[in-house]
Nucleic acid binder design. Sequence first.
DNA 1: GTCTATAAAGCGATAGAC
DNA 2: GTCTATCGCTTTATAGAC
Lengths: 200, 200
Amino acid sequence: MGADRRTDILRAAARVIARRGVRGLRVSEVAAEAGISTALVYYHFKDRAGILHRTLEFISDRAERYTGGHPGQGSREDNPRQALERSLLLEFQDRPEVRENSTAWGELQATAVFDPELREALAGARLIWLRRLTDALGRIHPASPASARTLGAERLTATLEGLSTRWLSGLLRLEHARELMREAIAVEVAQLERRTAVAL
Amino acid sequence: MGADRRTDILRAAARVIARRGVRGLRVSEVAAEAGISTALVYYHFKDRAGILHRTLEFISDRAERYTGGHPGQGSREDNPRQALERSLLLEFQDRPEVRENSTAWGELQATAVFDPELREALAGARLIWLRRLTDALGRIHPASPASARTLGAERLTATLEGLSTRWLSGLLRLEHARELMREAIAVEVAQLERRTAVAL
DNA sequence: GTCTATAAAGCGATAGAC
DNA sequence: GTCTATCGCTTTATAGAC
C-alpha cells in the first residue's frame, strides 16, 4: 500500500472520484481516504486541479495494466480477434478496481470538455488507446487499409465510452452492455473485412 | 424571449451548463444570464437540484424540436435511410443551440452516474430516443428482427454520445465526428441487412 | 514530512421589504 | 413577483509548530 505518499494519495483520489464524481471530490475526503491530513495533500500537490490532473495519469496507467498492455501480445493462445474482444470487455467488469477506473475515466472525460489543461492530458491517453486498437485490428485483417482500421478503432472507443457511461449510470445492465460491445466489435470486424476485400 | 420566467431561467441554465458544465453551474450565474436576481430563481425553483432536473427536460424537449420529431416523418422527400442519417447528424452542428444542447446533455448524462434522481429523468428521455431510432431502423428494413433493431439503436445512441463528447472536448473535429457517425450508421444498417437475410 | 488551526472565499439558500 | 441584504455552511488553501 505505502509505495509512496503520492501514490497513496492518487489511489485515494481515484476512489473518491469513483464515489462522488469530479465535482464531488473534496480534498479533505481524499485526505481522509488516504488516512492523512488535508495539509499533507497540499504538500504533495499544488492544488485541487493538480490532483485531478495527476489522477488522470494514474488511472490511465492502471487501466494499461489491467487490460494487459497491447491486446494480442499478452496471452499467446488467443487469436487476434479474441484478444481484441477480451481487451475491450475488460472494461465491463464488476470488480471495484475496474468500476472505479471506468467511472473516474468517464468523469474526467466529461470534465475535460470544460478544462483545456485536462484535455491535453486526455488527448495523450486517448492516442495510446487508439493506436492499440488500430494495431489489434491490423492483426485481424493485415491487408485492410490503414484508414479503415483507424476509423474502426475510433468508433470502437466512442462506443466503449458511451456504453460504459450507460452501464455505470444503471441504464444498462452489465451483461447487456457486454453483449452490445461484443456485437459492436463483430460489426466493425465485418466492416473491415468488406473494406479489405475491396482493397484487394 | 420572455414567454415566461420559468422558461427564461431554464434557457439561461442550459446556456450556463454548456459554458461551465453541471459542475460549474452557479445559481447566481444562471440568474445573471437570465437578467434577474438569485432570489427570483429560488422563487421559481425549489433548489439547485430542481433547476438541473427541469433543465434536463427542457433540453430534451428542445432537442426533440430541432431534430424534427420522428425521423422519416418530417421531410417526405427523404427515404428512411437518409432520414435516419439526417436525424443523427443534426447532433453534430456548430450552431450555438445545438452545441449547447449536446454539451448539456453530455453533462447531465455524466452527472447521472452519481445522481439517482437525475437518472430516472434521463431514463425516460433515453427511451424516447431509443424508440425513435428503433422505428427508423424498422422503416429501413421492415423484415428485420425487432431484437436486432433494438440492439442497433442502442449501439447508435452509445456511439452518438461517445463521438459527441469527443467533438465537444476538441478531441475530434466536427467533420471527422460526422464522418465517423455516418459510417457507424452505414455499418449498423449493413448489419441489420445481414440479420434480415438470416431471418428470411 | 506531517500535523492543528485558521484565514479567505465561495456558494446555496432564505428573510423581509416593496 | 421581484429585489437587496445577508446568514451560515462548506471548502480550498496556507501559516506555523513539531
